[in-house]
Amino acid sequence: MPVSEHVSSCPEFTTISQEFRDEYVIEKSRFITTLYPCSTEDEAQAFITRINKEFWDARHNCTAFALGPKQEQQRSSDNGEPSGTAGKPMLEVLKKTGITNIAVVVTRYFGGIKLGAGGLIRAYSHSVSEALKKAPKELHTTRMQLQTNVDYATFGTIERYLTDQQYTFTKEFSDTVTLTILLPQEDLEPLKKQLQDITSGAVDFEELGFSEVTIPITMDTAPS
């Protein structure tokens, strides 16, 4: 089936795949960072309210969120810290990484030693940056679906190749193995040629069109 010339306009963006928490201690102050995936401001505000209730006894629960494929909606709060030392640096980290559809709360338990404005900026930025590095992330994008049937003799070689090239694919087993591969449009013809070479031409393809997909990100892409 020939593929349509029309490609879905689904914007590509990276977010986190689940709520995640990390802790950083400096000068006896605890900075507890909680990240939350969300797509609306109502969801972000409900998350912030929940964290405020959980850490009701903390001196500060500073917040930031970025929503939309291009981070169109942005907001931050210093929550009592000196102006510009918490929420804004947290939001700047989100903007730098490009990660979106995310809300973050950094909870601070004061340790008795003042950090100063510069120290606070560094502490809040570092807390969010480190949490984003460690959190599981996923790519939301559009991919071509290419389906092919291969025999069991060549399946292992093809599976290793697709895995090495970090393609996302599913497999169904019957008399042959049916592979459905998700790939960028620009990879379509090169991949078909490579699979033809691997199988000495004994492979057919069916292009199933484009689909909006979520792909786990296994390697850290957030800057340090």
Results as ranks from 00 to 15, higher is better:
Gly98Ala: 01
Arg50Ser: 12
Glu138Ser: 10
Lys192Cys: 14
Lys53Ile: 03
Val104Cys: 03
Gln18Thr: 14
Lys133His: 10
Phe47Gly: 10
Gln166Leu: 09
Thr15Leu: 04
Val106Trp: 04
Val213Phe: 02
Ile113Glu: 08
Ala66Thr: 14
Glu41Thr: 08
Gly112Phe: 00
Glu186Tyr: 15
Pro2Ile: 09
Ser200Gly: 06
Phe173Lys: 13
Ser8Glu: 09
Gln18Tyr: 10
His60Met: 04
Glu186Arg: 07
Gly156Gln: 15
His126Ser: 14
Glu5Val: 03
Cys10Ile: 15
Ser8Lys: 12
Gln45Asn: 10
Asn79Tyr: 06
Glu27Trp: 12
Thr180Arg: 10
Ala131His: 01
Thr63Glu: 01
Glu130Asp: 13
Asn79Glu: 09
Leu67Asn: 00
Thr157Cys: 09
Asn52Arg: 14
Ala103Val: 07
Phe31Tyr: 06
Asp204Val: 08
Ile215His: 04
Thr63Asp: 04
Thr218Asp: 10
Lys133Tyr: 03
Ser200Tyr: 15
Ile102Gln: 01
Cys62Ser: 10
Val150Trp: 00
Gln18Gly: 05
Phe47His: 06
Gly201Thr: 15
Glu12Thr: 12
Thr100Pro: 02
Thr154Val: 15
Gln73Asp: 06
Thr154Gly: 07
Gln194Lys: 15
Asp187Tyr: 07
Ser211Val: 11
Met1Glu: 08
Glu206Asn: 15
Pro190Trp: 07
Tyr36Asn: 13
Tyr152Phe: 03
Val213Tyr: 01
Ser125Phe: 06
Glu189Ala: 09
Pro216Lys: 00
Asp197Pro: 00
Thr14Asp: 05
Leu208Gln: 05
Arg21Thr: 13
Ile16Arg: 02
Lys28Trp: 02
Lys134Asn: 12
Ala131Ile: 04
Phe210Asp: 13
Pro223Trp: 08
Gly68Asn: 05
Thr178Asn: 11
Glu81Ile: 14
Phe169Lys: 05
Gln145His: 11
Leu191Lys: 06
Ser211Asn: 09
Thr163Glu: 10
Ile48Thr: 03
Glu54Cys: 03
Gln165Met: 12
Glu23Gln: 12
Val25Ile: 02
Gly116Pro: 13
Gln74Tyr: 13
Ser129Gln: 11
Thr154His: 15
Gly119Leu: 00
Val213Ser: 02
Ser29Pro: 05
Ile102Ala: 10
Glu207His: 01
Glu41Met: 01
Leu188Lys: 04
Val93Tyr: 11
Lys53Val: 11
Ala46Cys: 12
Val25Arg: 13
Arg122Lys: 15
Asp78Ala: 04
Ser17Val: 13
Asn79Ser: 11
Ile102Pro: 00
Gly112Val: 00
Ile51Ser: 00
Asp197Leu: 08
Ile26Arg: 05
Glu159Cys: 08
Phe205Gln: 02
His60Val: 09
Glu81Phe: 11
Ser200Pro: 01
Pro216Tyr: 01
Arg75Gln: 13
Gln73Phe: 07
Leu91Gln: 10
Ser174Phe: 00
Leu132Met: 03
Ala222Gly: 03
Asp22Gln: 13
Leu208Lys: 10
Val213Trp: 01
Val93Glu: 12
